[in-house]
């Protein structure tokens, strides 16, 4: 959770410093800026949407009636190498073109791409009266150079309770946190149900078998200039859904678990508020909307360890972006 909030603050503070320049972006063409940003940001939105679905469970076995667990989960979605760049096509833009007129397209870095000048071709920005300036494509974050790999982090707090018929209700909930500069809330709900009990013969086999369906909604908003322009904000929302069939086998204090199923996400990044361009005086309301969605097959394998009521687990999930999750918490009954 702190990671999310920390990220949000970084997100927010840099937007604050950018607000005057955002108006210049609008003068240069909202549509082009939006197209460019969509490709540049995509790995982050994809990674976050994939990562947030990690850690919903550490066993296929349901709690006993009113058994509970409370956990903290940290996820890292691994950004694949081919998403360190995206293809810039001249034809997709009106006012932005590759400076090298012999090229019609080129690969340029995403947020997780290179910072080196030689990997960032010059882009030529031309305004409505024909003035132009060329500049290097946006750099990547430098995360890979700093820690060795590109990862999108996320974190969650989760609680589960055993109900009837070997069914667990799982809740992820953070009530709305708000301050002058941000608002944040998350709510997620999942249901895990033991399937083995309904299948003749199988219910006698020495492993657990169940299904989980889970949904998560994260809402956040960061005010760019809360004192002077209280309507100007950056909004970042993500909804995720997951369905999996699970199996697990307990061996002493260890449990091996895994699942197969599907995962999906919808993410939107919006710049809200009213913005007026300096030269033309034209007003733009809610000028930038970036929408992302995706779904993929998901299979994961994990190992958890129970030390009395303490439960520690780690798993690796193969999906659109592979996700590593670690989870620590307490589990009773």
């Amino acid at each position: 959770m702190k990671k999310i909030i920390a990220f949000i603050f970084v997100f927010s503070s840099i937007v604050s410093s950018a607000q005057v320049d955002l108006e210049s972006v609008l003068e240069g063409g909202v549509a082009d800026a939006q197209t460019l940003l969509h490709g540049y940001v995509k790995p982050f939105s994809t990674g976050f949407g994939n990562g947030i679905n990690g850690g919903w469970y550490t066993t296929a076995k349901a709690h006993k009636f009113l058994g509970i667990d409370i956990s903290v989960i940290a996820n890292g979605a691994l950004v694949p190498q081919n998403d360190e760049t995206f293809t810039f096509n001249n034809a997709d833009y009106k006012n932005i073109k590759l400076d090298d007129e012999s090229l019609s397209s080129a690969d340029i870095p995403t947020l997780f791409g290179s910072q080196e000048l030689e990997d960032r071709p010059l882009l030529k920005f031309t305004d409505d009266i024909g003035d132009s300036v060329s500049t290097s494509a946006l750099p990547g974050s430098g995360l890979k150079e700093a820690i060795g790999y590109n990862v999108v982090p996320s974190a969650m707090i989760q609680a589960g309770i055993g109900l009837f018929k070997k069914t667990d209700l799982i809740v992820r909930f953070v009530p709305e946190q708000s301050a002058d500069e941000y608002e944040f809330s998350t709510f997620g709900i999942g249901v895990k149900h033991d399937l083995k009990q309904w299948i003749p013969f199988v219910k006698k086999l020495p492993f657990d078998f169940s299904a989980i369906v889970a949904w998560n909604d994260i809402k956040s908003k960061f005010y760019i200039d809360p004192d002077d322009n209280p309507t100007q904000a950056l909004e970042f929302n993500t909804k995720t859904f997951m369905f999996q069939l699970l199996a697990s086998k307990k061996l002493s204090i260890f449990t091996i678990y895994g699942g197969v199923g599907t995962t999906s996400y919808e993410t939107d990044v919006n710049v809200l508020g009213t913005y007026e361009t300096t030269s033309s005086g034209e007003q733009y309301i809610d000028p930038v909307q970036l929408d992302y969605e995706g779904n993929s097959f998901r299979t994961n394998l994990g190992l958890s360890m129970d030390l009395w009521v303490l439960n520690i687990a780690a798993e690796y999930a193969v999906q659109e972006y592979d996700v590593v999750s670690v989870r620590i918490g307490f589990s009773i009954r």
Partner: peptide, 13 residues
């Protein structure tokens, strides 16, 4: 534009 886009995107970085 470039400076603007850079700063806006650096948000995500």
């Amino acid at each position: 534009v470039m400076k603007a886009v850079l700063l806006l995107c650096a948000v995500f970085a």
